[in-house]
Simulated assay, not measured.
Amino acid sequence: MLADIDTWVLDLDNTLYPARSALAEQLTHGILSTIAQYYETDLAGARRIQSELVAEYGTSLRGAMVTGTIDPHEFLDFERRIDYSVIGPDPLLATALDALPGRRYVYTNGSAYHADQALSRLGLTDCIDGVFDILAGELIPKPYAESLDAFLQLYDVDPARAAMFDDLEVNLALPHERGMTTVWVTDGTPYEQVAERRWRTADVRTFLATLDV
């Protein structure tokens, strides 16, 4: 299956490592703490504000920039204080990625710094041909068309020959409309096809192991 795919597009957070990991917890706390400081509120207030910003603008950073004057580099500075040692090598995932034909990219709403640190700890750096981060997208995040178009143009990706993995279903709607095969990484069955060129899996490693490529 998916024998026609030659470009593999992978989200990072909650996709290449589990959503329940200590790294995901640190990211959430870092974002909430930054929002709390910027909007002068407590963590409960920050959680409410974050939910509103993400719903309206796609990411907390984009929302804070549109509704305020925060500097994006200042917002992302919390990533420099994250302890990335809480995640370790995933040799089975590395083997599965290495076996894929064609190119493999990380497409993330986080920063390249965060992606580089996480990929290094996971032992996946050599498996990835490039990272497209929020700064490469000129601070416009998934799921906006401007972000997807910038990614496709930068790496000369043919959507009809690309598969995209993401833990947020909303981030996969437009890629699917453009002709990409999509794989929603979420709780549930190890893997299943839910529609033409649409799949769902509980784990990227498990899904890739089923491919005949």
Rank of each mutant, 00 (worst) to 15 (best):
D13L: 10
S33M: 12
D133W: 11
I35W: 12
Q37M: 13
G63T: 00
D129S: 09
L32G: 03
L12H: 02
T34W: 01
A173R: 09
Q193K: 11
A202Y: 04
F78E: 02
C127P: 01
N14M: 07
M164D: 09
Y144G: 03
T108I: 11
V204L: 00
G58L: 12
T125P: 02
D71F: 08
G68C: 03
A94L: 09
D133L: 13
R121Q: 15
T28V: 08
R161Y: 05
N14K: 10
T59G: 07
A96P: 01
A24K: 07
L12M: 13
Y17D: 05
D167R: 00
Q50S: 10
L211N: 04
Q153V: 08
E74Y: 05
H176W: 15
S60I: 02
E40K: 13
L92H: 14
R121A: 15
D129Q: 00
D4Q: 13
Q26T: 12
A136F: 13
R104G: 02
D116M: 07
D4W: 10
P91D: 04
G88F: 06
P18R: 05
H29A: 15
R121T: 01
T201D: 11
G188R: 12
V194M: 09
A44V: 14
T67V: 15
G130F: 07
D203V: 04
D4N: 14
Q193M: 11
T69E: 15
D156A: 15
P143R: 02
E138Y: 13
Y105R: 07
N171P: 05
D129E: 04
D203T: 09
D83F: 10
L174K: 13
L76F: 06
M1H: 12
L43P: 01
A3W: 02
A44Y: 12
A145K: 03
D98I: 02
F165N: 01
F78G: 04
R20K: 13
T59K: 04
V131M: 10
I87G: 04
Q37K: 13
H176F: 08
A112V: 08
G58V: 03
I35G: 06
V194K: 01
D42I: 00
S147W: 03
A136Q: 13
D167C: 01
V9T: 10
A145S: 08
V66M: 07
W8A: 12
E56A: 15
D83L: 07
P159G: 01
Q117H: 03
G102V: 01
V213Y: 11
G137A: 10
A19L: 05
E52A: 14
L12E: 00
F165W: 07
P141R: 04
E74K: 08
E196K: 09
L154H: 11
R178Q: 12
A115W: 00
G110Y: 07
